[in-house]
Design a protein around this nucleic acid. Structure first.
Lengths: 205, 205
DNA sequence: ATAATAGTGTCTCTCAGACATTATTTA
DNA sequence: TAAATAATGTCTGAGAGACACTATTAT
């Protein structure tokens, strides 16, 4: 029986939530992954898979679930690539970003894994600060709100969002601003000393 | 590299939350489990482990996490044995029930697995109906409340508990009563058609 | 009759959600 | 000056949590 590690790599890109996939010779797309050999642990194997198709090694990583088929044991992870890192990423062919709301034909069983990863990501967003992992180090409140909206797949009220995220005390203002079309936005950053997870209670919109 | 399945089997017993453990020749206690061979899947292997040490095969079963050490991959599950089933269970030696708040010396790393299983059980109790799995088919509201209190490790307000559990619509009264010392209690049962999980929002006390 | 357990209602306060206008910048 | 985006406060309704007494049975 063979054991492999599969990684669902999420990133924000062109205003959509995307997954990094590799196209096989059969035309079907697959999750990045690698067989588990005795030399590396699960996390290390997941990180190497990430590196192999994205060139990046730093990402938020979390184990999801272990699937079994008669031939194979598949330990799945999800990874969140920050916008900084994703920008530097030139997917190494045959890998390419694929929008979650428009996935290509996938190899057997992998659609289920991706959908489960998305469910867990949404879920986690509601009681922890995981959304920041997809943004650059400094971000405006509008960018943060758009991130939440993209992941949750619903629109949120601007004033309520700001009130709650600020009252939660997990971000702090920086002296910088983001300029562009329209009024410049104050930039915030994640407070690494903030309590990461809150008791099972929907904290964020 | 060897792969094994470990099962954290919970039950309520003598007013305490207990785990089923087996004592090895070295005196240390271990979680029930079995090596994964090619013939059975993960769940089936977990159920057989359950059967081997308890004689029972029916239990609520849920995968927890996959741990790795250089030699071994351990896929952990938790199982909830109903009071009915637990009563019929004569643990098959060297297995024995051990109270969670007074665990004996455990083999390496297994304490971590048990504590994680308990955290997940508490967590799940807050947004799903998993508490019923530990009770007999018919139960009084006081018994249900004691179950919640034992798992959560805190006391709950009687009136608030009843209001919320009844408003949630997941249990229904039966015509039967439980007699004993004091006023007889109406018995309830779980409504299997009730929505099992509620959106990330603390529903139960 | 006394001890034991079951069963019941109200009030308050916090928090989620709905909602519209002003402020500052670039083109 | 027009178009774009940022920033800000209030009201209302629902639900969580605190709280004490009556009802019914066995001994």
């Amino acid at each position: 029986m063979q054991t492999q590690v599969l990684v669902v790599i999420f990133s924000l890109h062109t205003a959509r939530l995307q997954v990094l996939l590799s196209q096989g010779n059969d035309g079907l797309w697959r999750l990045p992954g690698a067989a588990l050999d005795g030399r590396m642990g699960l996390e290390e194997t997941a990180l190497r898979s990430l590196q192999a198709c994205s060139g990046q090694r730093h990402a938020y990583l979390e184990q999801l679930y272990t699937y079994d088929t008669p031939q194979t044991l598949s330990v799945s992870y999800f990874a969140l690539l920050s916008a900084d890192a994703a920008l530097q990423t030139a997917p190494i062919p045959p890998a390419a970003w694929q929008a979650l709301d428009d996935l290509p034909a996938l190899a057997g069983g992998q659609d289920e894994i991706i959908q489960y990863a998305l469910r867990r990501l949404r879920y986690k967003l509601e009681y922890s600060a995981v959304g920041f992992e997809l943004l650059p180090e400094a971000f405006s409140l509008s960018e943060l709100q758009r991130t939440y909206e993209l992941i949750l797949g619903e629109t949120l009220d601007k004033r309520n969002f700001r009130r709650r995220i600020l009252e939660a005390g997990i971000i702090e203002p920086t002296p910088h601003q983001r300029t562009g079309e329209g009024r410049p936005a104050r930039l915030f950053r994640y407070r690494p000393d903030a309590i990461a997870e809150v008791k099972a209670r929907r904290l964020f919109p």
